[in-house]
């Protein structure tokens, strides 16, 4: 079933991420599923590029359940920050498990390692899912510092970055501060498209 909403989201994201270096998508929880679907479609479409998908929201396993065998996405490496700390002990070659979402520096190290091994002519993308979840596990100032670092690094190394913010109504004041660091903000509303 091709949903027009998903299709629309995908197009918006693809266009933005090609035009801008860093894009933030702010969306209500009800649309989270749609956006994930759209993102996976994006990754599928841009299969010659290297993607890093950082999940702090859902365990990697959940994506496997949603999209089936993820080896169909060989260009995507997942960094799962929550499975280990939730006691989920699985292994998958396509996913790097980090002990805890508080170990933000580990994320930086893993990203660096993944892109170092990527070939030169590949475009590089990071999906951060999501800033909202990171805020749950960490001190807001820490997340801000981390995001700054990540963003600066991405800029200097020509990596495109897509961050998710799942919020209803008024945004958290820390997140509000953060999202304006991005080159482009896409706000998804129920009335979208």
């Amino acid at each position: 079933m091709v949903s027009t909403l998903v299709e629309g989201l995908k197009e918006r994201v693809l266009t933005s991420i090609s035009m801008y270096q860093s894009v933030c998508v702010v969306l209500p929880g009800t649309n989270y599923q749609d956006l994930i679907q759209a993102l996976f479609n994006c990754m599928r479409e841009k299969h010659t590029d290297q993607w890093v998908y950082i999940t702090v929201t859902r365990p990697f396993d959940n994506f496997v359940k949603m999209f089936g065998d993820l080896s169909r996405y060989p260009n995507v490496v997942f960094i799962d920050c929550i499975s280990r700390s939730s006691g989920i002990m699985k292994r998958d070659d396509q996913c790097i498990y980090i002990e805890s979402p508080t170990m933000l520096e580990r994320i930086t190290m893993e990203i660096k390692h993944i892109f170092r091994n990527a070939s030169e002519d590949m475009e590089k993308f990071i999906v951060l899912d999501s800033l909202t979840s990171l805020m749950i596990y960490n001190d807001p100032t820490l997340v801000i510092e981390f995001f700054y670092q990540l963003l600066n690094r991405a800029r200097s190394e020509d990596i495109h970055m897509l961050s998710l913010v799942v919020e209803e109504g008024e945004l958290d004041r820390h997140i509000n501060k953060l999202i304006y660091l991005n080159d482009k903000i896409i706000k998804v509303r129920d009335t979208f498209i």
Partner: peptide, 13 residues
């Protein structure tokens, strides 16, 4: 398994 890797420590309060 890659050995030791470093990243600047985020300031903790």
């Amino acid at each position: 398994s890659r050995g030791i890797e470093l990243a600047p420590l985020l300031k903790t309060r």
